[in-house]
Deep mutational scan, measured.
Amino acid sequence: DRIFMTRTEALEFLLKAHQTAVDKIGHPSHKQTPADHAAIEALDRLLLDVRARRVDQFQINASAAQIIVTD
């Protein structure tokens, strides 16, 4: 599946995904793992790359739809 978004929409989408990941590892019942921190770092890099126009398409994980940034 493909989803087309403007750059602004894609950045909002990534910010929400980032916040969800941060909230998940901050929850008291969740045991933090290196994979959790790696996922947040990957989202940080992706946010910067989309914002800087170095990336025009991405996929958060293998089961997610491919996001295509349109400007």
Score class of each variant (00 low, 15 high):
D1E: 14
R2F: 10
R2H: 12
R2G: 04
R2P: 08
R2L: 10
R2W: 08
R2M: 11
R2E: 04
I3K: 05
I3T: 04
I3Y: 06
F4C: 06
F4H: 05
F4K: 04
F4N: 03
M5T: 00
M5D: 00
M5H: 01
T6I: 02
T6Q: 03
T6V: 02
T6P: 02
T6C: 04
T6M: 03
T6F: 02
T6A: 03
T6G: 04
R7P: 02
R7I: 08
T8P: 09
T8S: 14
T8M: 12
T8Q: 14
T8G: 10
E9W: 02
A10I: 02
A10V: 04
A10T: 02
L11G: 01
L11N: 02
L11C: 05
L11T: 03
L11Y: 07
E12M: 11
E12G: 06
E12T: 07
E12Q: 12
E12Y: 11
F13S: 02
F13D: 00
L14P: 00
L14D: 00
L14S: 00
L15P: 00
K16C: 06
K16W: 12
K16A: 11
A17C: 06
H18G: 02
H18C: 05
H18P: 00
H18L: 15
H18V: 12
Q19K: 13
Q19A: 11
Q19H: 06
Q19P: 01
Q19E: 07
T20F: 12
T20S: 14
T20Q: 15
T20I: 14
T20A: 15
A21P: 01
A21N: 03
A21L: 15
V22D: 02
V22F: 07
V22P: 01
V22L: 13
D23T: 09
D23F: 02
K24R: 13
K24Y: 07
K24P: 03
I25Q: 05
G26H: 15
G26N: 15
G26E: 09
G26W: 13
G26Q: 15
G26D: 09
G26M: 15
H27G: 10
H27P: 07
H27Q: 12
H27E: 12
S29T: 11
S29G: 13
S29L: 10
H30Y: 12
H30V: 07
H30K: 06
H30W: 10
H30S: 10
K31Y: 10
K31D: 11
Q32E: 13
Q32N: 13
Q32V: 15
Q32A: 14
Q32T: 14
Q32W: 15
Q32G: 14
P34C: 05
P34W: 10
P34M: 09
P34H: 09
P34Y: 07
P34L: 10
A35Y: 10
A35Q: 12
A35W: 08
D36Q: 07
H37K: 12
H37E: 11
H37F: 14
A38P: 03
A38N: 06
A39Q: 12
A39K: 07
A39H: 10
I40A: 04
I40W: 03
E41K: 13
E41N: 09
A42N: 09
L43R: 00
L43E: 00
D44F: 15
D44N: 15
D44K: 15
D44C: 09
D44S: 15
D44M: 15
R45N: 07
R45I: 07
R45V: 05
R45G: 04
R45D: 03
R45T: 06
L46I: 05
L46F: 02
L46W: 02
L47W: 07
L47S: 03
L47Q: 03
L48R: 14
L48Q: 15
D49Y: 04
D49E: 13
D49R: 04
D49V: 03
V50I: 06
R51C: 06
R51H: 09
R51A: 15
R51G: 09
A52P: 00
A52W: 11
R53T: 04
R53Y: 11
R53N: 12
V55K: 04
V55P: 00
V55Y: 02
D56C: 12
D56P: 02
Q57P: 01
Q57E: 10
Q57F: 12
F58L: 02
Q59P: 03
I60P: 02
I60V: 08
I60G: 01
I60R: 01
I60N: 01
I60H: 04
I60C: 06
N61L: 08
N61M: 10
N61D: 11
N61V: 07
N61C: 06
N61W: 11
A62V: 08
A62F: 08
S63E: 12
S63K: 11
S63G: 12
S63C: 09
S63V: 11
S63N: 13
A64I: 07
A64Q: 11
A64N: 09
A65N: 06
Q66A: 10
Q66S: 09
Q66I: 15
Q66H: 12
I67T: 01
I67S: 00
I67W: 01
I68W: 10
V69Q: 01
V69A: 02
T70W: 09
D71S: 06
D71G: 07
D71W: 03
D71F: 04
